[in-house]
Write a protein that binds this DNA or RNA. Structure first.
Length: 589
RNA sequence: GGCCCCGUAGCUCAGCUGGAUAGAGCAAUUGACUUCUAAUCAAUAGGUCGCACGUUCGAGUCGUGCCGGGGUCGCCA
């Protein structure tokens, strides 16, 4: 496996520092901020000077002398207070890219210790249509899952269905209020219950808001819903049967959304799956003295002496006997430990739930629900806002459904595609396919390219402009390569040994070589926007290359074969990174 | 009020462990299509990095304090 270009260079420069009596860590090399001065730079002489109390330029000069001996660099200069600017010999660069071409992971796995990671994202709820709030969780979560797989980790993704709290009681009572004759509410009914759901998912989506509203101005109704929730959790047969129906139709509905967004889950578990585990967990926590009764509820005190902020206890059992999502979250951690023994559990959930997760994580540590070697991390994200800067709403103030968001994007894409005159070239089926891919890519790239924690403005017109920093721009670059390679194949042209004959080629190679650092940084910070930056640079360098360097029409056969090879590796990397971002590239557009 | 997140070009946003002249995209201006897809490329212009102190040879980046926006703070998820 090939080490990344930067790590190789850092090692070489580090060795030079060592030779002149300084620590190798000063040899860290980064891409140059000023391309006209070099391809890479090392600022270590400044830091070393501080430490050794010496003149930085003096140190840099000594290092330069060592580096010149290697014969790997075509240009080495000392600039400013002690910056070392570096340009590589073409052979070195070309050799490195040739090595990468042999590695389907472009050197990204070379220093990574594979681990087992559980990603918890998506988080749809029974009866509620998926809405804007689920967009980021799904897009970011899926991207992080693909990133993990790319790095060689075992990635387990769990949709963690919201199917066990008070909303279930509200639904049961509201349905009973409307259809009291259904057998589910008759405690004496001995079954069997009907095979078909008494409610459709569309009905549920109307019933839930109605029930929720009713609970707010009818305390008796709320009370009865609490009781129903409790009874459901205790296993009342009729309620369970009705719940199962509601859950089934809701899951079926969410699958459509997840399919559209390309989200893949290895597990379709939910809060309810913890129900059998909860009693023994509660027993243990009580017996070992972790939980206590406070104001009629069973809680775990998670405040610590050193806390500057207020830290409310985690409530495991409400005074009415029902459990809460903190309870199921804690139980889920224990069950995941037993089933998977993961190295990390990542929760891709709205940043507003950070307090909740801090409570749960503290409780899990305190109660030894999970080993200290397992990372627990809340990967929060900001809200999706409208043009007014406030969370996105429909015109009449309602919740924006995820489906309509996606459909709007595809519609917008279709419109722009029609304007380009593409309808002349492709048939309806292909146009549909391209519109879908473009629309989804527009949404995803716009979402992922923002820093996770920031809120962003959802502006379809801007996302689908197809100019500049958008998903479609990247797709377009990839499609151009595909088209060229197709033509090359038709003409029986073949790839050949890589050469560097033009700066546009060198710059493209440098962009390709930068992937490992982008992958590492993206994984460390759980930040897909770093990959968006990378693929954007790659597309830009390719487009420059495309304009300046003819490929198929190149007269020199060695250069032509080399350029074909470079196009091939560019496309392979582009498609891989776009795949991690969840973006599919059509063959033509 | 406590705590968390955000504040960078007219707009939308990047900025890695503190380094040279703070970067992209959109919008504006100018050039490049008989040419491998112009959904592209090349160039110009645009800035008191919210404010003030502090640490440092050096701060958008680190520390403290303010200001502005958003979020959150015990039986919803």
């Amino acid at each position: 496996m090939t080490a990344s270009l930067l790590s190789q260079l850092s090692q070489i420069v580090g060795q030079a520092f060592k030779t002149v009596g300084l620590d190798t860590s000063y040899g860290m090399v980064v891409p140059s901020q000023r391309r006209e001065l070099g391809q890479f730079q090392c600022n270590g002489a400044l830091a070393a000077a501080k430490q050794a109390k010496r003149n930085p330029r003096e140190i840099a000069t000594e290092v330069l002398t060592e580096l010149e001996k290697t014969g790997l660099f075509s240009e080495l200069t000392l600039a400013g207070p002690g910056f070392i600017n570096i340009r590589l010999m073409d052979d070195f660069l070309v050799g490195h890219i040739s090595d990468l071409a042999e590695d389907s992971y472009f050197g990204c796995r070379s220093r990574h210790m594979p681990m087992k990671v559980i990603l918890d994202y998506g988080g749809p709820n029974v009866a509620k249509a998926m809405h804007v709030g689920h967009l980021r969780a799904t897009i970011i979560g899926e991207s992080l899952r693909r990133l993990r797989e790319f790095m060689g980790d075992t990635a387990i993704s769990d949709v963690h269905f919201g199917d066990w709290g008070l909303p279930m009681g509200l639904l049961i009572r509201e349905i009973e209020r409307r259809q009291p004759d259904l057998p589910y509410f008759d405690a004496g009914f001995s079954g069997p219950y009907p095979d078909n759901s008494p409610v459709t998912v569309e009905e549920l989506q109307e019933i839930y808001p109605a029930a929720s509203a009713r609970s707010k101005d009818d305390p008796a109704f709320l009370e009865s819903a609490r009781k129903a929730t409790f009874e459901l959790q205790k296993g009342r047969a009729g309620y369970l049967a009705l719940w199962q129906h509601m859950r089934d139709v809701s899951i079926a509905e969410t699958r459509t959304d997840f399919d559209l967004l390309g989200a893949h889950f290895t597990e379709w578990k939910g809060e309810a799956d913890t129900n059998d585990h909860i009693p023994q967990m509660m027993d243990r926590l009580a017996k070992e003295g972790y939980s206590e009764v406070s104001e009629g509820a069973v809680v775990i005190n998670v405040a610590e002496e050193s806390d500057k902020k207020e830290m409310p206890p985690l409530i495991l059992e409400k005074s009415d006997g029902a459990v809460m999502y903190g309870t199921t979250d804690l139980a889920t951690i224990e069950m995941r430990r037993e089933e998977h023994d993961p190295n990390a559990i990542l929760y891709i959930v709205d940043a507003r739930q950070s307090l909740h997760f801090e409570q749960v994580f503290r409780a899990a540590r305190k109660c030894n629900s999970i080993g200290s070697d397992c990372r627990l991390e809340h990967i929060g994200f900001g809200t999706v806002n409208g043009k007014d800067g406030k969370p996105l709403k429909t015109r009449d103030g309602g919740v924006v459904r995820l489906r309509s968001l996606i459909e709007d994007a595809i519609g917008e894409a279709r419109k722009v595609i029609a304007e380009t005159g593409m309808s002349e070239r492709f048939d309806t089926a292909e146009l549909d396919d391209i519109s879908t891919k473009v629309g989804i890519a527009a949404i995803k790239y716009a979402d992922l390219s923002n820093q996770r924690m920031s809120n962003y403005v959802f502006d379809l017109e801007r996302f689908t402009k197809f100019e500049g920093r958008t998903g479609p721009y990247q797709m377009y670059a990839a499609v151009r390569i595909k088209s060229m390679l197709r033509k090359a194949a038709e003409q029986n042209l073949t790839e050949g040994r890589l050469l560097a004959t033009h700066d546009a080629e060198r710059n493209l190679m440098l962009a390709i070589a930068a992937l490992p650092e982008a992958i590492t940084a993206a994984a460390e910070k759980n930040a897909p926007n770093i990959l968006c930056d990378h693929v954007y640079n790659l597309s830009q360098e390719f487009n420059s290359f495309y304009h300046e360097c003819p490929v198929l029409g190149e007269a020199n056969l060695d250069i032509r074969a080399s350029r074909l090879c470079l196009c091939g590796i560019t496309l392979r990397q582009m498609e891989k990174v776009l795949y991690i971002l969840g973006i599919d590239v059509p063959d033509r557009m």
